[in-house]
Structure formats: C-alpha cells, structure tokens
Design a protein around this nucleic acid. Structure first.
Lengths: 219, 219
DNA sequence: GGTAATTTTTAGATTTGTCTAAATCTTATT
DNA sequence: AATAAGATTTAGACAAATCTAAAAATTACC
C-alpha cells in the first residue's frame, strides 16, 4: 500500500515519540508536528482505519507492527539520503536534515536499494544514528548520555539528540561533532554544567542542555 | 517563489507542448496530463495570477519568460537525476523516467548544484536530451528525425521522441539505444517503413512509428 | 451568415489536510 | 465525590486540486 507524505510524517513522528514513551498522546504529537490537536485526531482516525496505529479515543496511541515497519522504511530512506549528501555531495552534516526530509518520501523501492548498494551499505548516518536495513533491522547503539559519562573517561560522540539548526549551529561553533573524542573533567551541581576537554585543546564549559543532547560511547 | 508539485508539472507540460506548437490549447494540455479540460482551466487561472503564463480565455496560452525559467529549472533537475540514476546507480536508461518525475520536485537549490558538480556537469541525459545549466541554457541538439536520414549515411541515435514504456520496451527488444550507430538501407513508400542496419548485424525492418520516434546525428 | 459541432469555461461537488471554537472526556485536587 | 483544569474530540469551515454536468464561446460547414 502507498501512503501520503503527510501520513508518512505522522508515522515517523509517532515512532520517534515512542522511543521516549511507548504511549503517545495527541498533544505531544501536535507539538512534534507543529500542528493542532484537532488535526492530529483527524489523522489518527485515518491511520487507525489503515491499521497503522492502535488507537482508542482519549487513551493515547502507538504504532501497530505494520506501522512500525512503515516508520523504519521512512527512517531508512532518510538516513541513507543523509549519508549520500554528506559522503558524496560534500554537504556539511549539519545541513542535510531538511533536504533528507524531502528525499525520504520518494517512493521507488528499487531506488533505495540501489542507493544503499552505491553507498556500500552504510550502518550509521552522519549524525551517528543507525540505518535500518531493508528488513527494518538496525545496529543497536550502546550509547550513553554525556550527562552520565564518568569523569576522566575519554568517549566518542556518536549521536546528537536533535536535528534543530540551533543545536547544530552551537556544535559547529564549539567544533563538536560525530566522532569527536571528549572527556568530562568536572561537574557543577548547581546548574549541571560541566567542564569538558578535547584532545590537544584547553578545557571549556558546556551547559546541561547541551550535554543532554550529546550521546557518547566510551573508548 | 515556490510552486506546488502540480503547478510544476503543468508548467513542464506546457513547455513540452510549446516545442511543437507555440500556442497551447486547453484540450492538448488536459490530454498531456491525463486530466480534464475543466481542471486545466482552473489551474491556468492560478498560473496566470502568478504571471507564469500568458492566457486569455478561449485563446490558448503560452509560458511567460518567468514560466519558461521555471520549466527549465524543473527539466534541469529531471535530467540531472536521470543521469545520476543511470551513471551512478546503474539503472537502465529505460527505467529512470518515473523516478526522476518524483526527484525533479525536490526543492533544494544547493542540492542540485552539488549534484551537478558530483556528476561533473553532464551536458546530455541518458536519453540524449540536453541538460540546461543553472542559468537555463542548454546545448542545441542538431539532430534530425530518422525518417529524414538519407540512405547509406551512418548516424548515431541521440534522442528518443517519448519516454513511454511501450517505446522503451521495443527499443530494448531491438537493441537500439542512445549512441547506437545505424544506417538506412531502403525505404518503403507504401507504409513508410524502412530497412536499417547496425554495424556487424544483419539488416531489419522498422515501422514508420518507430522511425519517427528516433532522432539521429550523422557521423 | 446561420446553425452544428467542438472547445472551453463556469458552477457546484468531492477529497485531503488543515484550522478555530465548542463540546466532551479524563485527571487532579480538595 | 464534586469540581476545576487540562486534554481530546467533534462540528463546521477553508484551501488546493480534482471531477461531472451544464453553459458559453469559437470554429467549421453548408
């Protein structure tokens, strides 16, 4: 079956919200999609009729098995295109999100399989997120939040918590990115800020908000 | 300004019809787009309001200068993507049209410039049609119809007159394609069929309809 | 030049996705 | 357990793009 771009965007958004909390609410989804609760209710009826969500009035909702499959398909396309944009077209990793939001809705199955082969079956996208394979399977990222990284343990940044331009701009400014090696030197309980250090550079302070958006793997 | 996918498809279709006859009619366009004359009239009012067509009720219409610019932009994207699909993703040249119909509507300007660079600024797409540059300029194809090719003059196929799957299937069957060298051996006035020959193969017959769909350049 | 045939446009309806405002349900509080 | 606050749904409207059927304009023809 085929789905509209809007339907795909709803499904993808529900998938992302489910990562945090299995049961998704109307207001949460409206906020995620910059739309109104009433519009969400309308769309949920459609998605329920298509058996993509399990939804009971006033009770919240979650994706059905079929819905998850659709979500993973869209995410696969999104992340493969991001990889293509960065690795082949020399885009910066902080400027590919919007373009991939459009490319992910191209329908050809053959296209995405051939693109995957052309890119030599990458496992992670430029933001460090795993790319689902054609069956929806993806590598588990055993990553922890920078807030939870013990002091003096070098770790590699593997993923960022959001794709907002504001965050990406800040990361660029501080020269932080996927693959950067970083170490926590000191924590300040008052505001949860922390002093961190990159190899060969002097230490600097990052805020709680920023630390929370960064995921690392110890090395 | 930004245009909807539907608007872009109308503009592109008008552009193509104008190649044959400068003044385009409502019915022609409806046939080209597989829609109804009433829908065309509605859209023409919109395009006129946006100053993309010169249109007077009942009088037919043509693209404005601005409209032509939009059309060339869409055609540029379409042909660049076709080139990408064939050269990089190993698609057959007869299976790229539908996919490119979707890709041509991706809006990022930066994407298309980077794609152009990645492909090393190709001048012709896999069907032999010239690719407009970022200013809308394209190489003129001094090509003639196979129907008009003199007997015993070897020529190279540079373009096909339509992208219909029926035509492409026939070409594949006969092993004809862009770049094929061909020579007319004999013409039959009765049905305008002709005997042609490819280097190292025995001659065979092609119909008027097929010959009409092939454009060649003598060598 | 008047009528017939054809083309084009208008009028009114439909579908998809959205909105605001009002109604209804759930949850939190006392 | 009653009420207030908050979340969710319904009702009714709107814009984009489409359709069918009917009206209007153009063109073709005798």
């Amino acid at each position: 079956m085929n789905f509209s771009i809007t339907e795909e965007n709803y499904i993808k958004a529900i998938y992302h919200l489910q990562q945090v909390d299995e049961n998704v609410t109307t207001n949460e989804l409206a906020a995620e999609l910059n739309t109104k609760a009433a519009s969400v209710t309308d769309m949920l009826k459609k998605l329920k009729a298509k058996k993509l969500v399990n939804y009971e009035k006033y009770q919240g909702f979650r994706l059905s098995t079929e819905g998850k499959k659709i979500a993973l398909g869209v995410i696969r396309k999104h992340r493969l295109w991001e990889f293509f944009l960065v690795e082949k077209l020399q885009f910066g990793w902080d400027e590919v999100h919007e373009v991939a939001e459009e490319l992910e809705h191209i329908t050809s199955k053959k296209l995405i399989e051939k693109l995957d082969a052309f890119l030599e079956y990458p496992k992670f996208d430029p933001h460090g997120d795993p790319i689902p394979d054609s069956h929806g399977r993806m590598a588990a990222q055993k990553q922890i939040n920078l807030l939870d990284l013990p002091v003096n343990e070098p770790a590699e940044i593997v993923s960022v918590g959001s794709q907002s331009t504001e965050l990406l701009e800040l990361l660029k400014h501080k020269n932080l990115g996927i693959g950067t090696t970083i170490e926590v030197k000191k924590r300040f309980a008052f505001d949860h800020s922390m002093e961190v250090k990159m190899k060969g550079q002097s230490a600097f302070i990052i805020s709680q908000q920023l630390a929370q958006a960064l995921f690392v793997r110890t090395i």
